[in-house]
């Protein structure tokens, strides 16, 4: 019984981590054409990252949008602007809580 329980917990943990979206996105391994080049550029711009963040993979169905949102979040979210990056991260976290978004 204990063994099953542990397996269940492990399976549950991995099930959540696999992040299989309910809308079929483009996996890194199966990307071709525009999606493949968008992914390749992302990996090049983010050395040392093993996988593409789930939120960006959601945009892989429209590679132009993938590039645009990556550019936008780089310009607005991930750098100091009129507000510090730190303050914007706090706002983003609060908004995500208000929107009940666990991701």
């Amino acid at each position: 019984m204990i063994v099953n329980l542990e397996l269940g917990i492990v399976a549950c943990y991995f099930a959540r981590r696999l992040q299989v979206a309910r809308i079929r996105w483009v996996e890194e391994s199966e990307a071709t054409g525009e999606a493949a080049s968008a992914y390749a550029d992302w990996f090049q711009a983010n050395p040392g990252r093993a996988a593409i963040p789930g939120i960006l993979k959601c945009l892989s169905l429209s590679p132009d949008l993938f590039r645009a949102m990556e550019d936008l979040s780089g310009r607005l979210h991930f750098r100091d602007g009129h507000l510090s990056c730190r303050l914007k991260e706090m706002i983003a976290t609060y908004v995500s809580a208000l929107n009940q978004c666990p991701y």
């Binding site: 979210h77 929107n99 978004c101 666990p102």
Partner: peptide, 20 residues
């Protein structure tokens, strides 16, 4: 930034990135 995360939150929840 507030509006940007309205976008990200809805996309993430719609795609089901985490168990709601």
């Amino acid at each position: 930034i507030t509006a940007l995360f309205a976008f990200f939150n809805r996309v993430a929840d719609a795609f089901g990135l985490e168990d709601p």
